[in-house]
Amino acid sequence: MTTGTDIPLRHLEALESEAVHIFREVAGEFERPVILFSGGKDSIVMLHLALKAFAPAPVPFSLLHVDTGHNFPEVLDYRDRTVARHGLRLHVASVQELIDSRKLRERPDGTRNPLQTVPLVEAIRTHRFDAVFGGGRRDEEKARAKERVFSLRDEFGGWDPRRQRPELWQLYNGRHAAGEHVRVFPLSNWTELDVWQYIARHGIEVPSIYYAHRREVFLRDNMWLTPGDWGGPKDGEPLEIRTVRYRTVGDMSCTGAVDSSAADPEAVIEEIAASRLTERGATRADDRMSEAAMEDRKREGYF
């Protein structure tokens, strides 16, 4: 007899099996894959799956982090500890370096998430990566909902819907011309709830800001933002100390915290199960710039 607790367990096992299969397919089909690693929960789970896919051998891929210069210190600390723990190689593509060299221009609002495309594509070209693993999920946002698991990109990182291939029976086509590459999304069919249930089941460590903590924040556009050198708060934006947590991790200038008392994975799962907003819809200002903000960035070469 099947019990209620068996259902999520089998569901997570099926998702895990699919992701492990994708990692092994890429290892056999591509020459220079890389894993995008931000220190956020999705990239953490993705790395855990990669470690599992090739154990006891080491992961045959390096990591790539696009550093905006406005990242949360807790996340950067977690990133560096993880790299050291598993003996991984980390490449860092810096937004600040491109601003200093005048290849990029700082935005008036101080937000740097939209500036990540250029350093990302430049790093892919410089290191000749032919497959780039990303932690995007279809439930996050409508532009991601239409993505394939293998997403073909041109030499500039651009996405063209007319060039994407059907993926029947979990058969993936990684063929690409010289200079092109493929973005690969092993977590495509996962949800935010799946990710947290997997974290809870396997006892995976995540940065402390994913759990409730006391923090100095200010309100802007109905989001609680962390003050910093990026340009906040402004006049008329008083600081408050609140108990909050982060559902997603990005640039400090556009990633909002939510009021929460969830201090462990089980409490987070309970909170997410009752939510009617995705984490990006609730806490990411960069996705609110226009109705097609994420779609435009995808076409230009982002995620």
Score class of each variant (00 low, 15 high):
residue 171 L to H: 13
residue 179 G to D: 11
residue 169 W to I: 00
residue 223 M to S: 05
residue 189 N to S: 11
residue 288 R to L: 12
residue 189 N to C: 03
residue 118 V to C: 02
residue 25 E to N: 09
residue 295 E to W: 06
residue 245 R to C: 08
residue 212 A to W: 03
residue 42 D to Y: 03
residue 99 I to M: 11
residue 103 K to Q: 10
residue 276 R to F: 00
residue 146 K to Y: 00
residue 10 R to I: 05
residue 76 L to Y: 04
residue 223 M to G: 04
residue 56 P to T: 04
residue 155 E to L: 03
residue 4 G to C: 07
residue 241 I to T: 11
residue 146 K to H: 00
residue 252 M to E: 09
residue 217 V to S: 03
residue 185 F to V: 04
residue 133 F to Y: 15
residue 102 R to M: 03
residue 291 E to S: 11
residue 157 G to M: 02
residue 170 Q to S: 13
residue 299 R to I: 02
residue 138 R to I: 05
residue 73 P to Y: 05
residue 50 A to G: 12
residue 235 D to W: 14
residue 72 F to V: 06
residue 246 Y to D: 00
residue 43 S to C: 13
residue 156 F to G: 09
residue 120 L to D: 07
residue 152 L to I: 11
residue 115 L to Q: 09
residue 13 E to A: 12
residue 151 S to L: 08
residue 278 T to D: 06
residue 215 R to L: 05
residue 16 E to M: 02
residue 63 L to R: 13
residue 292 A to Y: 00
residue 274 A to I: 07
residue 174 G to T: 02
residue 33 P to E: 02
residue 120 L to E: 08
residue 47 L to H: 15
residue 257 A to C: 06
residue 254 C to W: 09
residue 100 D to S: 14
residue 166 P to T: 05
residue 36 L to Q: 05
residue 157 G to K: 04
residue 61 F to H: 08
residue 9 L to Y: 14
residue 27 A to K: 12
residue 186 P to I: 00
residue 99 I to Q: 11
residue 36 L to K: 06
residue 54 F to S: 07
residue 92 V to T: 15
residue 74 E to S: 14
residue 85 R to D: 06
residue 259 D to R: 12
residue 150 F to I: 14
residue 295 E to M: 12
residue 245 R to V: 00
residue 268 V to T: 10
residue 57 A to D: 12
residue 234 K to Q: 12
residue 79 R to Y: 02
residue 263 A to S: 15
residue 297 R to V: 00
residue 198 Y to I: 01
residue 264 D to E: 12
residue 189 N to V: 01
